[in-house]
Design a binder for these strands. Structure first.
Length: 357
DNA sequence: AAATCGGGGAC
DNA sequence: GTCCCAGATTT
């Protein structure tokens, strides 16, 4: 047992030195701010998807203090399209905490790091090890997969017991004097060799002692217990144009896309046509007796999210007088690019622009 | 303990 | 369609 553990750690470090060809701009980075920024962006996000966002943020905000000074709307606009927008809100709160409480100097203590908004067990270990060479083992999707396979552990990784079991094991495997190199090794190894589908077992430096391989469990490990439910939702967006202005508002509920903006939105339990919506209570409240002209009705478009399928339709309307008082604000068409919108809306705006040419 | 929070790429 | 990605937070 102890033998196979030593083998695991030694082989991974060796693989990292000899065969790890994965390159990323934050690899070997020493600035804890940049390390932290990369980790926040990469939460539940593929490296290729997060990379351009990392570059943008480093350019706009080279230090935590610069980020802390930025207006929230500007930061959200830069985050637009990346998803999981609570990360953006928490990131800004953490930057401001660093700027004030820590006078711009990133805290170098694990508990202080983990106490920052948006930093959980994984990100705290990553920043502590990569930024300060502290002996904390990271536990991300790659680590779960590599450990569950190498040791043939079938405890569900999304259970409380699994989190503790894999977390303890990862920490025991960590060579305290090489925490950064080791953490980097396991994650790269999981991404490049011990992949979710079709892992490269024949070229794997651990295959000789991999328990899942010996027991032919590669394709069933790691085990996940929960299966997700996907709901269908129907969003009817109204681009109501009044002179050169459009009605928008910031989303504030517990729903998706918190802190992003939207046009006038009426959700219906089923797909709806304009004639259905005219009879809709929310629609009647909004428009009252205001006459409107229908400029355009888009084809239905679908967006697949993790927990829901969103069917969207866009109705472009023009009014010659303002709507009765409501929750929305009138903003100039030219300033729309200052606000962050969800992908379903930016995709529509993109298409609309193309149609004009 | 379970539910939620986005968007995209690979299959 | 399904899975899952350098997870965290709320309920």
């Amino acid at each position: 047992m102890a033998d196979s553990r030593l083998f695991f750690t030694e082989r991974l470090l060796e693989w990292n030195q000899l065969s790890n060809t994965r390159t990323m701009p934050w690899k070997g980075e020493k600035d804890p701010y940049r390390i932290w920024l990369s980790e926040i962006i990469l939460q539940q996000t593929r490296v290729e998807q997060g990379l351009p966002y990392y570059q943008k943020f480093i350019e706009h905000y080279p230090t935590a203090t610069k980020l802390a000074q930025a207006p929230e709307e500007e930061v959200f606009r830069l985050w637009q399209g990346l998803g999981y927008y609570a990360r953006c809100k928490n990131m800004l709160a953490a930057a401001r905490e660093i700027a004030t409480t820590y006078k711009g100097k990133f805290p170098g203590n694990y508990d202080q790091i983990k106490a920052l908004k948006g930093i959980g067990a994984y990100t705290a270990a990553a920043v502590a090890s990569f930024g300060f060479h502290l002996p904390y083992a990271v536990l991300d999707g790659n680590v779960y997969r590599v450990l569950s396979r190498y040791f043939a552990i079938d405890t569900p990784i999304d259970s409380t017991a699994g989190k503790k079991q894999f977390g303890d094991l990862a920490q025991e495997l960590l060579p305290a004097d090489q925490s950064a190199a080791y953490n980097q090794s396991v994650m790269d190894f999981g991404a490049v060799v011990c992949k979710p589908q079709q892992p490269n077992c024949t070229a794997c430096p651990l295959n000789r002692k991999c328990q899942a391989r010996q027991q032919q469990l590669i394709d069933v490990l790691p085990v996940k217990s929960k299966k997700l439910q996907i709901k269908k939702r129907y969003f009817n967006h109204f681009l109501v144009e009044f002179k050169d202005n459009i009605y928008i508002r910031k989303r504030t509920g517990k729903d998706i896309w918190q802190n992003l903006h939207e046009f006038i939105l009426i959700e219906t339990p089923e797909a709806a046509e304009l004639d259905d919506l005219r009879k809709n209570e929310a629609f009647r409240q909004l428009f009252g007796k205001t006459p409107f002209t229908v400029i355009n009705v888009s084809a239905p478009q679908k967006q697949q999210l993790t927990h829901q399928t969103i069917h969207s339709r866009f109705f472009t309307l023009e009014v010659k007088q303002a709507l009765p008082p409501n929750d929305y604000q009138l903003v100039s068409r030219k300033t729309l690019d200052k606000y962050a919108f969800p992908k379903t809306i930016t995709a529509f705006l993109q298409n609309k622009k193309l149609q004009l040419f």
